[in-house]
Amino acid sequence: MKAEAVDAATVRTLAEVAGISLPEEDVEPLVGALRNHMKGMEELDRLDLGEFDPIVVFDARWT
């Protein structure tokens, strides 16, 4: 989904999936916030990241 396609219905659906009871006054600001987030992800999608492992910590040792 493109950032500009995010609308109130998108936000309500995501909230339902997440199991959040969303106050009505939060819906409109969340549309803007989610668009911002999606634009940021679109920026990252333009980077070539194939050679990098994500920064996560996993240590298989039993301590």
Partner: peptide
């Protein structure tokens, strides 16, 4: 989230 952590490594 994982993409962001990968970009963080870069």
């Amino acid at each position: 989230y994982v993409t962001a952590q990968r970009a963080r490594a870069a």
